[in-house]
């Protein structure tokens, strides 16, 4: 009887441990599929599900946040996904989050990735719709690549043409093989080098000149930088203008005068005519002048005599003394 009881206990232990393992594994699997956790349902819409199936994981910022509940085709271009998001995680997922379909690793299962959107927003709630982010679609990449390939084909064909023409053209080869060309190009280059060296020197000198101009108070510096002088210059110019206007007037008058004199000469009138045209007058004038000369000489003699006169001697002596005093001062 005792033995039977022990057997019974052993059997019970055996059976219970087996069932416990079953229950435990079912629980662990169920926990992965969010069956025993509080969660909320949100929806999102895609044009391409990319092989997503119910039970795939939903990740928020790379952390397990829920699972895909269903993948439904609701019209010809739209696929509706229902996502079960953990209640715990949903507190931190905002309404402006973006959903995209990716893979776990390079060849792993499909996952729905949620990434935070820009700016502040409320946390998601039951029945919300999450906007989707367009991801790089492999098909689209391949399509673009196909266009690129076509372009590359056209390009290579044209390149072949160009090279063929290049090969057939003797002129190009002549140009390439001409050694004198190389020499002259070399010479040109050395000339250019020299020119550039001189240009450099010139520039340096010019710099120096400009520097000096700025520093030293020369004429040019005055001309360029002295504002007072420019005012003066302006005034001078204005005066010069005035003067030139007056000169014009004066010239006019002189002109008139000359014209008048000329007319008088022509008509044989006036003193000018008399001076220029009357020969007898010229003779008398000549005589008068010689007489004046003579009389001046006589006058000089008279004056000298006068100086020596006692009446005036005192005056001249005083004058000499005064002059001498001024000089010594």
């Amino acid at each position: 009887m005792q033995n039977k009881r022990t057997n019974l206990i052993k059997l019970g232990l055996f059976t219970l441990s087996g069932l416990l393992f079953l229950v435990l594994s079912l629980y662990l699997i169920g926990r992965n599929q969010q069956l025993f956790r509080a969660s909320i349902l949100v929806k999102t819409y895609f044009r391409h599900a990319g092989g997503l199936v119910p039970g795939n994981n939903v990740r928020y910022a790379g952390i397990q946040a829920g699972t895909v509940k269903s993948v439904k085709l609701i019209n010809d271009t739209t696929i509706q996904l229902e996502l079960l998001i953990d209640k715990e995680a949903s507190k931190h997922i905002l309404k402006n989050s973006l959903a995209s379909i990716g893979t776990e690793g390079l060849i792993g299962n499909r996952v729905v990735n949620l990434v935070p959107g820009d700016g502040p927003a409320e946390p998601i709630q039951e029945g919300d719709e999450i906007a989707t982010k367009k991801t790089i679609d492999t098909d689209a990449v391949l399509e673009t690549l196909s266009v690129t390939n076509q372009n590359a084909a056209i390009l290579s064909a044209e390149l072949v043409q160009t090279i063929t023409r290049f090969n057939n053209s003797s002129a190009v080869w002549k140009l390439l093989e001409d050694s004198s060309l190389a020499v002259s190009i070399k010479a040109s280059l050395s000339n250019i080098e020299q020119a550039s060296v001189s240009t450099k020197q010139l520039t340096a000198e010019l710099n120096q000149v400009i520097h000096d101009l700025k520093q030293e108070r020369g004429l040019v510096q005055h001309l360029i930088y002295d504002t007072v002088m420019s005012g003066q210059l302006e005034r001078t110019l204005a005066q010069l203008e005035q003067t030139s206007q007056q000169t014009v007037t004066m010239t006019q008058k002189v002109n008139d005068l000359i014209t008048g004199v000329q007319n008088e000469i022509k008509e044989g009138k006036g003193p000018a005519n008399a001076i220029l045209s009357d020969t007898s007058m010229t003779g008398s004038l000549h005589r008068s002048l010689s007489n004046i000369e003579k009389s001046t000489a006589t006058f000089n003699e008279n004056m000298t005599a006068l100086q020596h006169n006692f009446l005036f001697r005192g005056y001249f002596r005083k004058k000499e003394k005064k002059n001498a005093k001024e000089k010594s001062n």
């Binding site: 079953l22 594994s25 662990l28 699997i29 039970g55």
Partner: peptide, 18 residues
């Protein structure tokens, strides 16, 4: 190890076998 094992198991693996 057990996370990896049970993450990759589903009811459709356990129940038919059971």
């Amino acid at each position: 190890y057990y996370t990896q094992v049970f993450n990759n198991l589903s009811f459709s693996d356990v129940l038919p076998a059971f």
